[in-house]
Design a protein around this nucleic acid. Structure first.
Lengths: 287, 287
DNA sequence: TAAGGGTATAACAAATGGTTATGGGTGATC
DNA sequence: GATCACCCATAACCATTTGTTATACCCTTA
């Protein structure tokens, strides 16, 4: 029996769907389907009732669901304790501004509670290349970025992926809608981040895929300011989901673009695999 | 991370040796070596200090050793609870006399404590073929025997393997030794079990491998009587280890035959895999 | 110095775990 | 009531993993 199967089982049960769970787990639906069959085979019992609308638990599945979470939690804490013996301290993280400003602080706050001792510092840069150089030169120990298109020799693990939204002021005509299609925005002029920025690069790639031209109304240095720009009704923008959590809901609306398949993927990249695993444990584990 | 790796880690730690543990686990030493490396890689820490005399735990290994057993116990109990939902009752076991007399009673007693409800009955026969026929015809649900040389379509899992010993009366000349070699006994006349019996068959095979002739002094129907025979100083015999636990230590001595490689292997064979797994859980699990 | 017990490594076969492509239900929508 | 969107299963395929046997090398001991 594989511990990953059990983790996947928990996710699947909560999502009530193999397809949705497989996205959360960064794998395809058939792969997850196979894993759950393996788990059922291993336990000698059917865990899910599968239907065209999703999956629900059998009696056996309910037993597993109720009992397994503390087990996984315990395994996780053992993992952490073992990594702690390595005496790793003073981890230096390099990442993009949006991650540093919107994502890391909460994680750090949660981890600090249990591990005051271990100081973590953050170095911020817009550009891939610079962050990777920092990593290579030992200025940082780990990087958080989208490394799908980058060749590198380091240990790496996907953390999450986020869809893009159209950010508009509440008074903008599109703000009445609750979702939009790419056609609704492809001819709008957008406020964008600098050319070296990951979000900008992904946006340009997405427009190319959709055979559209990215029209730029203004270019702004940092994510936080772009939000200020939109909330002053000076333009609209397409940004990753994380920006929604830090935008003023009363003035800004974020609209899902249903047929916009491009996602931003954030991975943890570490020169030293042990340090990567420790950080994963301390900051990014769901347990 | 694989749950089997963790179980193997426990066994290895207790055995202080990959080689010895690999025997207990019914696998080869390189296979176990690989598993332990995988576990170390997964955890990001070295667990064992390997030397020419065996293995011992590192600090990280000690943490794992101290913490993991209850986790495995819990997983095991969940497994059992899940199998119990299938409402399997009245399991009928078929096996050889020695297993039925010396091995099963203890196991059943231990299991009965927690599971009074589930009655288990036992059918005994000397011969493979008859036991397999019982299985085929549904007279029994599971069989306990050595199925290494048998082709069958059923679910099967090795339970244990036992070496053979020379059983002699305390007054026998060899009783002064604490171990012997095959050469010391190959010309002795032995008391043996009937020709259809598994122990007899293995014994004949072993003598053939060692290029010796099996000389028979008498043939006796059942294991328990053979022990009585020896304790009356009426002969010597070669029998599997389990007979030592039920022989009168003050009158009988069991001598390891160091260069006698033949072993008796007992597997659990079940028509219905779920029932096999349940029985494994209830009766034969180390947890 | 040779033997015996211990682990590691190489080479290979079988099983596993992932991918894409595709098919068949089911429920919502026009 | 046809069609679309969504969900799960399966097939075919490839890469990785996990087992096997054979062998090497190290250390302890006789």
């Amino acid at each position: 029996m594989n511990v990953e199967w059990l983790e996947a089982f928990l996710i699947t049960t909560k999502a009530k769907s193999l397809t949705k769970a497989s996205e959360q787990l960064h794998m395809t639906q058939p792969a997850l389907s196979k894993q759950m069959r393996k788990l059922e085979e291993d336990l000698g019992a059917t865990l899910f009732i599968r239907s065209a609308t999703g999956v629900e638990l059998t009696e056996a599945g309910k037993i597993l669901f109720e009992e397994i979470e503390p087990v996984l939690r315990k395994i996780h804490s053992i993992r952490k304790d073992i990594l702690m013996t390595k005496g790793i301290t003073g981890i230096k993280i390099g990442t993009w501004p949006s991650i540093a400003a919107f994502y890391l602080p909460d994680r750090l706050a949660a981890a600090k509670k249990s591990h005051k001792d271990r100081e973590i510092s953050i170095k911020v840069s817009y550009s891939y290349k610079e962050i990777l150089r920092f990593l290579r030169e030992g200025i940082i120990d780990v990087a958080l970025l989208d490394d799908r298109e980058i060749q590198h020799p380091y240990w790496s693990k996907q953390l999450f992926s986020e869809p893009f939204y159209l950010f508009v002021h509440r008074q903008h005509p599109l703000a009445k809608r609750d979702h939009i299609y790419f056609n609704d925005v492809k001819d709008e002029s957008l406020v964008v981040l600098p050319p070296s920025c990951d979000v900008r690069i992904l946006l340009e790639k997405a427009f190319k895929i959709h055979n559209a031209d990215l029209k730029i109304s203004s270019e702004i240095d940092f994510g936080q300011s772009i939000i200020g720009f939109i909330s002053a009704n000076l333009g609209v923008s397409i940004l990753p989901e994380i920006f929604t959590h830090h935008a003023d809901q009363s003035r800004i609306k974020a609209l899902p673009i249903v047929d916009f398949k491009m996602k931003r993927v954030i991975s943890l990249i570490s020169r030293n695999p042990d340090m990567g695993k420790l950080l994963l444990s301390l900051l990014f584990s769901p347990y």
